[in-house]
Design a binder for these strands. Structure first.
Lengths: 127, 127
DNA sequence: CTGTATCCTACTAGATACTG
DNA sequence: CAGTATCTAGTAGGATACAG
């Protein structure tokens, strides 16, 4: 679950608490893009994350009702993650923020690394 | 400045890095609501925050180009904070997220505190 | 393949006292 | 009033080894 900082002052407060984890936005993005992903696939989509942290974030998102976890008792084991309706709604609410980031990432990054510049690469979804 | 976690994978990643601070959403909210606020006023709006952390967040937001800091060399000292155009755009992009939070905060809070001052009911899954 | 357990580091953030 | 300095606690996140 999220940080659980307590009674939220506003909806935005609650929302950032839910998506505030370091890799959570990328997890939501990946799930929104592919619909359903196994643990390993998710690991590859969210490149750089460790198993522990990925599991941790996944559990929190599950506890918050954002993602659904489906376990298949097979050999080898298989677990699939997907977005719930709440998660899809969250992702839609996240779209404008993602677009803002895409549009202004250059300025933001430029402030951080005045000499280092890279194409935004447009990971935004067409929706 | 924000966490500065490095090259962003997507715009959303950059955006949450900018607004990810514990009190930043509330700071943006207050500034959006009142337009321009002094340090002390901001402190009152963002109730619970300490001077150090408020300054820290303000500096980060300023470094990210989200807020503008205007210093008046008077006695007593006066400093006014306001949103830049970038900050206003960010706030607009944050609106849907805030609405999502408002709509679903009850479920989220209910998951966190099933027995605390709230009806144990209405933890309904979205599925 | 999907997790769990343990150890460790860095950072966020809070309390308090002090300065201009 | 606005901001800084110092000390401290809690926790998010990372590396690695191990288990079902």
């Amino acid at each position: 679950m999220a940080k659980g900082k307590g009674p939220y002052v506003c909806g935005l407060d609650a929302a950032v608490d839910v998506v505030g984890g370091k890799w959570k936005p990328m997890i939501l993005w990946a799930l929104h893009d592919d619909g359903t992903l196994r643990f390993g696939e998710l690991r590859r989509h969210v490149s750089g994350v460790s198993e522990k942290v990925l599991i941790q974030h996944l559990r929190e998102l599950e506890a918050d009702g954002i993602v659904h976890r489906e376990v298949y008792r097979e050999v080898p084991p298989r677990v699939e993650y997907s977005l719930t309706d709440l998660g899809e709604a969250l992702n839609r609410a996240l779209l404008p923020l993602g677009e803002w980031g895409d549009r202004h990432m250059r300025e933001i990054v430029a402030r951080k690394h005045p000499t280092e510049c890279e194409e935004p690469a447009a990971v935004a979804q067409s929706g």
